[in-house]
Computed example of a mutant assay.
Amino acid sequence: MSFIDPLNSEAFEVFGQHVIWSDMIGNLAGLAALALGWRRSVLTWPVQLLSGLILLAANYSADLSGGMGKQLVVIVVAVWGWRSWRAGRRPGDGEAAAAGTGVRVRFATWRERAVLAAGAAVGTLAVGSLFSAYPDLSWNPWPDAYIFVGTLVAMVAQARGLVEFWFAWILVDLVGVPLNFDSGLPFSGLVYIVYFALVLWGMRAWWLQTRTAQAPATTAPAQGVAA
């Protein structure tokens, strides 16, 4: 018996859908990671790492190569993001982040948005073509490719403290929810609906944080004139 067999055993049945332990535990950990990310806590990364490891087993049980690839991306980027946030700096620019909150958030520049969008489009075409050429890799190549690449884009944006990472997660979830129901992972589908609400909440929190961070810069000159 494989060591992952107990994780992929049935936990319970609801509305005729069989829920396995790995699907349930991994997604609950993912919810916790999302809530920690909203609070900009560095703990979001180790929890995401744990979630990725458990959901890797869940996607293996459902023969979702794209989903497995997505979780491998989650694991790798979680390690990178964890190191970056622990250093208290945004990757790439070396600026100190807000003390104790992991990273200083900001909106991406138009150039960064263009790079992320182009990377998502080219990456989806490349991975989708690979999955189509080798059917054993995925039974649903283009949605799998979209989710795989979209997850990578979202997590890179999160590690850099970009508010746009929340928008990327919304776009991934729009495809991920129906695909999980169709693939026999109903708990993932249900949890992604909860994810959507948390994403909207987190997006608002990060958006407001960017305005708070900009406030000192806008008020400083006026204070200097007054002095």
Results as ranks from 00 to 15, higher is better:
133 A>Y: 06
134 Y>M: 12
134 Y>Q: 15
135 P>C: 07
137 L>Q: 05
137 L>G: 13
138 S>R: 13
138 S>D: 12
139 W>V: 12
139 W>S: 15
139 W>H: 12
139 W>P: 14
140 N>M: 08
140 N>G: 01
140 N>P: 01
140 N>W: 11
141 P>N: 06
141 P>W: 08
142 W>F: 15
143 P>F: 02
145 A>K: 14
145 A>Q: 13
147 I>F: 06
148 F>N: 08
149 V>Q: 10
150 G>D: 05
151 T>Y: 13
151 T>P: 09
151 T>R: 00
151 T>S: 15
152 L>S: 08
155 M>R: 03
156 V>H: 05
158 Q>C: 13
159 A>R: 06
159 A>S: 15
161 G>A: 11
161 G>Q: 03
162 L>G: 03
164 E>S: 01
164 E>V: 04
164 E>P: 08
164 E>H: 01
165 F>N: 15
165 F>G: 07
165 F>W: 12
165 F>S: 14
166 W>R: 05
167 F>C: 06
168 A>Y: 13
170 I>Q: 12
170 I>G: 08
171 L>V: 14
172 V>T: 12
172 V>M: 04
173 D>C: 08
174 L>H: 00
175 V>K: 04
175 V>W: 09
177 V>Y: 03
177 V>T: 14
178 P>E: 00
178 P>T: 00
179 L>Q: 12
179 L>I: 04
179 L>D: 04
180 N>L: 03
181 F>W: 08
181 F>G: 05
181 F>T: 04
182 D>K: 13
182 D>G: 11
185 L>Y: 00
186 P>K: 00
186 P>I: 01
187 F>T: 02
188 S>C: 09
189 G>I: 06
189 G>H: 04
189 G>E: 02
189 G>F: 02
190 L>M: 15
191 V>W: 00
191 V>C: 10
191 V>S: 11
192 Y>P: 01
193 I>K: 00
194 V>K: 02
195 Y>V: 07
195 Y>D: 03
195 Y>L: 06
195 Y>C: 11
196 F>E: 03
196 F>D: 10
